[in-house]
Every structure is written in structure tokens, then in C-alpha cells.
Write a protein that binds this DNA or RNA. Structure first.
Length: 401
RNA sequence: GGGGGAGUGCCCGAGUGGUUAAAGGGGACCGGCUGUAAACCGGUUGGCUCCGCCUACGUAGGUUCGAAUCCUACCUCCCCCA
């Protein structure tokens, strides 16, 4: 059958090779070797696939590594196809049972998908993006599913090393997990993917998609894996559930502040993966880190926000002054304020924890450390006071009417 | 279908009748040093009406002066044999 693969020239032209190299920048692998150049050598836009899991809607900087790559393809005129894995999410992956992952309702999945798209289009060009839900084609007849399942063997599916490790550790692997690569691969068949992107952890699934496409007599996609961005702890991958993430919708001061906490050792990595450049030569780590913060805040907010965020940082963390704007907390009109209770309410901690930070000298009133005793203060004495817990939690007290 | 093993605090993981709110590690929080970096050091880490009380070791009962530890049933998971 005539297809894109059939009239492939033996050697891609130099232009295609050059473009392929450019598009592969930052990637860990682009497979098979020379595949992308060959695809680019043919005319017409390529279909670039990215599958996303709609169980967690918020996009963080880790996701943007892949999204930026998609945007780069778009800039060259290619078509991005975003696949929202609503069907697989709806089935509910039982493998996470130890993580007590709740099965999401269709409404939640739709809401998450909407949020995700909203955030993704801060990076991607909407006009060059096709959004598809995989329930569209995965809601298939059992007969069709069986025929899909017949295209792979268990041995092949078990090859992936994370399964191997789990088997050795005696941890469970659900049948659905085993099937996952098949379903993901079928997505590629359904949308005629030319290139599929993903993190390095997706390598197996991405390559498996090629086999499935071939089994259905389709041209095979090439795959490109991107590095995994470490979180602000500098060790584990950035992820919302690990709490080490920077969300693209984080407020400017928070985004800047979190970036400043990234370990120096990861600075070059952050520059390369997020800005596509090396830190300016000759800059000290702190200078390079500030510049990183300014640029990223400017990207996801704007220049003015970046300036303000840096000023806020200098004020609160370098000079240890109270921030310009502090949320108010209303205290009851008369009588005493029981500090542990007030702290609990103000900062969403328990009263016991309030007592603890107080005892540890972690609570300040207008910059002065409060002693462990007393616990109660007359309301008028605290009216207007700025209460601070630790380095970055502030509230201004206001006596109620 | 048969046999064996496991469920502990945010997570991992000790503990097999009392001095256990439960070792140790991780994480988190507070403090020190700083560039809110990392590393490092010290402290804290169930709740509350906090020098005491309450609730906790899968769930529900039971034995005992006393149980996370023993018994019974149930739930969930893992492994092996078929």
C-alpha cells in the first residue's frame, strides 16, 4: 500500500537533517536513528502526539519541558495532537491502590481535562493543536479489543524494567497496567501519529506504539524522549504529589521564591530544560538563579510581575521585612486571644502545632519573637499586629467590631 | 481448589502481654549557619480545655488487672502449589 514510508529516500537531505537536529535539541533520545530527518524530508506537516493523564490537572514546570518541545514543532509548522486519556482514567487504574488513588468521576475528568488544556495553551498554539479524547476510539467492541491484545505477547509486555523490578519486589501488576502500552499504542494508530513525545520514563510505551502501528499496517511513528525535570528538592522528579513542584499558575512571588530554593547543583539543568540555554557565563549561582526566576515569571506572568516578585523576595527573605500585602485575620472583639487557637485558625494547623511553634520560638509579633508564655493576650494589644510563623507565613490581626 | 505470609503514625519500617503516643529512617515543621541554595548542626512531628486527659497499631468482637502484641470472625493484599 502506498504510504509515507514507501517513498522514503535513502538519505534525507541536509536541510532535513539540520532541522531534525534542531528539533532534537534537549531530547534524550530520538528513535530510530535518522527517523525524524527522514520524516521531515517529506513534504507536509507531521502529526506530533502527546498523551496526557487527566487525573491531575495542574501543569508544573516539569510538564513544560515536553510542552515546549511541542511548541517548537508547532513553530516549524507541524500539527500537535493532544490526547486526553479520559477512557483509561475512567476505568481507574487499580495499581495505585496502595497510593489510594480514587477513581475519578467523568465530571472530574472533564474538569481536569479542561483545566489542563487551559494551562497547556499558555505554551501551545491553539490553532495548531488538535485535542482528542481516547474514549472516542477505545470504547470498542470486545472483539476489537481482543484483536488488539492478540498483537502483543506477555513476555514482550513484561520486558519493561519497572515491571521486572516489581515482580522481584513482589509488588502487584494489574492486568490493566499490562495492557496499558497496547491502549496507548492504539492511540497512535487512531490518530496516525508521526512522532510521539514523552518523558524518558515513557520510552517503553512510546516504542511499543511503533509495534502496534506496524501490526495494523500503518507507518511507524518516531519517538522522542525528554529529560525528567527534578523537583525543587533537586532529587526526585517534579510532581505534584511529592510536593516539590512549581505550577505554571503559581503566583509570581511563589514561583520566584520556589525557584530560588532549587539547589545550585540543578541550576544548569533548569536553565537548559526550561530556557533552552546555559546560565550566563560569569554569573554567580545566585545571579543565574535570579535571572532564571525573572525569566520564568515573565514567561508565565509578565515582566512587571517578575520585577515585583524579585522585590518581594528581597524584602521578605533578604531583608526579613514583612511583605507589602498581608492577609488580615479578624480577632474577636473583646476578652483575650488564645494564641494557639488563633494560630491554628490563621494558618490551618492544629492548636497543638501552634503551641509547638510558639515554644520553639517560631512565632513573631511585628518582628519580635514571642515567648512560649503567655498563651493569652488581650485583644487590644494585638490589634494591628503582624504575626509571623516561620519565614514565610504572615497575617495581620484586626480586632473585629 | 490447597498451603504459607502480611496489614503499625504523612511514607517506609521496628516492635509479639505492661516503663509504647509506639525504635530507626525519610519527609515535613521550627531554630542555627546562609545566597529562603545545597550540605551541615540542634529541636519538634496524634489531638485537646496541655504539668493532665482523650484517641490511636486493617475492621468488629473476646481473653486479661493490663493488648499493637493472645483468641475468634470478617475485609484487603502478597507468595507458592494445582
Amino acid at each position: 500500500m502506498p504510504g509515507k514510508t514507501d517513498n522514503r529516500p535513502a538519505v534525507p537531505g541536509p536541510e532535513a537533517q539540520e532541522l531534525a537536529a534542531r528539533l532534537s535539541s534537549n531530547s534524550v533520545e530520538a528513535l530510530p536513528e535518522g527517523g525524524l530527518a527522514a520524516q521531515l524530508d517529506r513534504d507536509g506537516p507531521l502529526r506530533i502526539k502527546l498523551g496526557i493523564d487527566p487525573t491531575a490537572p495542574d501543569i508544573h514546570l516539569g510538564h513544560t519541558v515536553v510542552l515546549n518541545k511541542l511548541a517548537q514543532f508547532q513553530a516549524e509548522g507541524h500539527q500537535v495532537v493532544l490526547i486526553i486519556g479520559d477512557y483509561t482514567a475512567r476505568v481507574g487504574d487499580p495499581s495505585g491502590r496502595s497510593e489510594q488513588r480514587p477513581v475519578l468521576t467523568p465530571e472530574q475528568i472533564d474538569a481536569n481535562a479542561a483545566t489542563f488544556q487551559d494551562q497547556a495553551f499558555r505554551i501551545l498554539d491553539r490553532s495548531q493543536t488538535e485535542v482528542r479524547f481516547n474514549s472516542e476510539w477505545l470504547r470498542m467492541e470486545a472483539e476489537d479489543l481482543f484483536s488488539l491484545m492478540a498483537k502483543a505477547t506477555i513476555a514482550r509486555l513484561l520486558e519493561r524494567d519497572d515491571f521486572q523490578k516489581r515482580i522481584e519486589a513482589g509488588r502487584p501488576i494489574s492486568a490493566l497496567e499490562l495492557l496499558y502500552p497496547l491502549l496507548q499504542g492504539y492511540d497512535s494508530v487512531a490518530i496516525d501519529a508521526d512522532v510521539e513525545l514523552g518523558g524518558t520514563d515513557q520510552k517503553f510505551n512510546l516504542l511499543f506504539g511503533r509495534d502496534i502501528q506496524a501490526a495494523y499496517g500503518r507507518p511507524q511513528q518516531t519517538v522522542m524522549t525528554m529529560p525528567i525535570l527534578p523537583g525543587i528538592d533537586g532529587t526526585r522528579r517534579m510532581s505534584k504529589s511529592l510536593g516539590n513542584y512549581i505550577g505554571v499558575t503559581d503566583p509570581p512571588e511563589e514561583m520566584f521564591g520556589k525557584l530560588m530554593r532549587v539547589p545550585d547543583a540543578n541550576l544548569t539543568e533548569y536553565w537548559q530544560l526550561l530556557l533552552g540555554a546555559d546560565p550566563p557565563a560569569g554569573d554567580s549561582p545566585i545571579q543565574a538563579k535570579r535571572e532564571l526566576g525573572r525569566r520564568l515569571v515573565a514567561r508565565f506572568h509578565d515582566e512587571a510581575a517578575a520585577d515585583l516578585a524579585e522585590q518581594h523576595f528581597d524584602r521578605v527573605f533578604v531583608r526579613h521585612e514583612a511583605p507589602e500585602e498581608i492577609e488580615e485575620f479578624e480577632i474577636a472583639g473583646d476578652g483575650d486571644v488564645h494564641l494557639p487557637a488563633a494560630l491554628a485558625e490563621m494558618f490551618g494547623i492544629s492548636r497543638s502545632e501552634g503551641r509547638r511553634v510558639l515554644a520553639q520560638g517560631g512565632v513573631k509579633r511585628d518582628g519580635e519573637v514571642l515567648p512560649a508564655e503567655p498563651l493569652d493576650y488581650p485583644v487590644p494589644e494585638l490589634d494591628g499586629a503582624v504575626i509571623q510563623v516561620g519565614k514565610r507565613r504572615f497575617r495581620r490581626l484586626r480586632a473585629g467590631a
